[in-house]
Design a binder for these strands. Structure first.
Lengths: 242, 242
DNA sequence: GGTAGCCTGTGGTTGGACCATAAGCACTGG
DNA sequence: CCAGTGCTTATGGTCCAACCACAGGCTACC
């Protein structure tokens, strides 16, 4: 035959079949968050494959944040459907970034867009609790004697809280993953800052301004502020982003 | 002690240690795309763990698109660092979407922002080849007798080509992953359209308008057009996104 | 009634065996 | 000399059988 796909006929590996079966159950809604899977041994027997192959599939799903495994006996033991995405996402992004699949620049641009989306939505209708949390974070960041690690943590929390206030779970998770993936570079950038105290107060002021715009319901202004906030920072540390 | 982290002392599993070692090598730049890893057996011996544990780690990395495994002997055999992110990303997103971690709405909103970023950047400086490819795709979409699957494919290619023209690899991959994750819903939405031919010509017209704006270097206009393009579609199929 | 200790189910880990595949290599026949 | 053919070897793919550690439930003993 003239079929050009002769060479591509890779046999489907066993653990991939197991993977497909479980994934299909999730996609069909037959498996939902909190559900418990059969034990590795049962699963292997049911699918006619070895426990090793089952384990490989389960480990993959676990690395994706889809499953969580617990040893022991009783209700909580075994593999249960988890649905925690951020750690898996950030890990994935970080590794691919290290492999130069994406540049720091790419990442910053995407981050800006996500943050714009977040603040615009947050301004449109943020929860009272979210706003209170944001205020508390700005207060915490204004405290004197802030070190790099601690400030980064609060800074991240502020931006993520902003995203959470936008009520878009995907944007929130993505942003958290992106921030997580560049955490190391971020702290390194902090260290390069000449006048740290000035930087802290500048950033904190900007946070306050963003928060005020959100509280005022001015999404457009908040989006502009957050854009300048991010671009300004990268300009100041002279890294990526002209 | 008052340390509340008593219960969280889960022992690190063997395959996680292997995973960490390899990931660290990638993060440090000691492993790059194209590099070949030792064989599973060697790796196990070197790290003092069983081959099974090594395999679990490798399968995880493979599922992340970081590695690719080939049987046999010679140069190409064994595990090599791959760096293909889109399939892994879309798989991850699709599953978490099925687990209701994100709604279709979330996804559309993020997509809009990514597309806005893409067209704005593309307008700022698209490659001649990219533009030619985009023109070819609009021509292909205008051909009569387009079925759902085929149109979706061309539509996706158009938007991804747009992203590629933006020269932001992360945005491109994310967009492709997002589109991939909702492919099924998308085609289902197509089927619900009453007058398919009208829909096709409308969408194709909009694509042309976006392309013209990009060619003219008008990023702002292109961004607006693409936003209306996406929102208009979802409004027309009466699904998600008011 | 409480508690200590056994029982059982679960993931975690190991070692060994065998298979299929694909490349390299040596032999052999033209 | 060269081409083909089969052996060798390195690799991932798969399975099995066993053992461990842990956690919850159960039971028997005090």
């Amino acid at each position: 035959m003239s079929d050009p796909e002769w060479r591509t006929v890779r046999p489907v590996r066993t653990h991939e079949q197991v993977l497909t079966q479980i994934q299909q159950k999730i996609l069909d809604g037959r498996l939902r968050v909190g559900d418990r899977l059969p034990s590795e041994r049962e699963l292997g027997e049911a699918l006619g494959v070895s426990r090793n192959s089952v384990r490989e599939a389960l480990r993959v799903l676990e690395s994706m944040g889809i499953l969580s495994a617990q040893v022991g006996s009783g209700r909580d033991a075994g593999s249960t459907v988890a649905g925690r995405s951020t750690a898996a996402l950030s890990n994935l992004l970080r590794l691919h970034m290290a492999l130069s699949q994406f540049s720091q620049n790419d990442l910053v641009d995407v981050r800006i867009e996500l943050e714009r989306l977040a603040v615009a939505r947050a301004a449109a209708g943020a929860d009272v609790g979210d706003l209170e949390r944001l205020r508390a974070l700005t207060r915490a960041m204004a405290e004197p004697g802030m070190d790099y690690e601690r400030f980064h943590e609060l800074d991240s929390e502020f931006h993520i809280a902003l995203a959470r206030a936008s009520d878009n779970a995907l944007a929130t998770d993505l942003m958290q993953a992106l921030r997580d993936a560049v955490k190391g570079e971020m702290i390194a950038a902090f260290r390069r800052v000449r006048d740290w105290d000035v930087m802290v107060s500048t950033l904190t002021e900007e946070h306050l301004a963003i928060l005020r715009a959100v509280e005022a319901g001015d999404g457009k202004e908040a989006a502009e502020l957050v854009t300048r906030h991010i671009k300004g920072f990268y300009a100041a540390v002279g890294d990526a982003q002209e």
